[in-house]
Amino acid sequence: MRDRTTRDLIWIASLWLVLGILGEVAANYALNTWYPEMFSQQGGVTAGAFAFLLRIVVPGAILITIILVYSAIRFRVPESDTRDSPAQYRFGRFFAWTWLGLSAALNILFIIYPGATGLLALANYQAAATSPLQVDVTAMQWQWNFSYPQYNLMNQSELVLPVNTPVKFMLQSQDVVHSFWIPAFGLKEDVIPGQTRELYITPNKMISTRVDPLARVQCAEICGIGHAQMRAVVRVVSQADFQQWVKQQKQPPGGMGMIMQSDMVSINRYQFNRTGGQPWQ
């Protein structure tokens, strides 16, 4: 009996070694291929946490799956066979306490890293932003409005940000709960009526919605009929281009700013490069 058990365990360990490595390769492939590129410091934190967790849980899930499938095949008998198993026991201390120890250790690890450390990193980015660019975001059914009080620039439908500058978003809602999400920046914050909420983001690469549809403002909390289309164009540009854009937007109506604005009225008119598909709706 003990010899067979040893053989079973060797089989499982070997399978785990092979499939675990394959799983890690697949996880890496998935992270490179499927997890989108992040364009902010904060997005680096959330993507890093995701990658770390994936690399740990993939081999873990593979091990348990191997044990389940191996047991089901190895200990299978014909369905007409109703004899009791020769091995009968109520408990196995070694197995149970190892299991408990491992799951507790993994929990402690995950709570500290990437859990608490991830939050700390986000908080540190916020603390480091001593003179951020302030953008007042107003959410309403079903559009976004951006104001730049430091530049006295109000009610923009497009979110233009200078690269490598910390941005402090002041989020307000005029009606129901919305959620301010820019997928390419890697985090979101709900916008709650009656509250002003803050979100710090530091874009660290230039990007625009035209190039990557994930670089868009997207409402992520159901808010009624227009929820899906509650989007806005995002452009992360160089400092010089940002100053230029501010200047253009502040020109009197009929000037350059107006043309730019009408060009940007709705994200839904855009043809996104990723697909080359048709504009819709």
């Binding site: 967790l53 348990i64 859990g115 991830g118 909390e221």
Partner: peptide, 22 residues
């Protein structure tokens, strides 16, 4: 099992800030 291990991602606050409501 798969539902459980993907719950680990959502329990992590920073990951959840990205994946919440997706």
């Amino acid at each position: 099992l798969l539902g459980g291990v993907t719950g680990v991602f959502l329990a992590d606050v920073s990951v959840d800030l990205q994946l919440h409501d997706t």
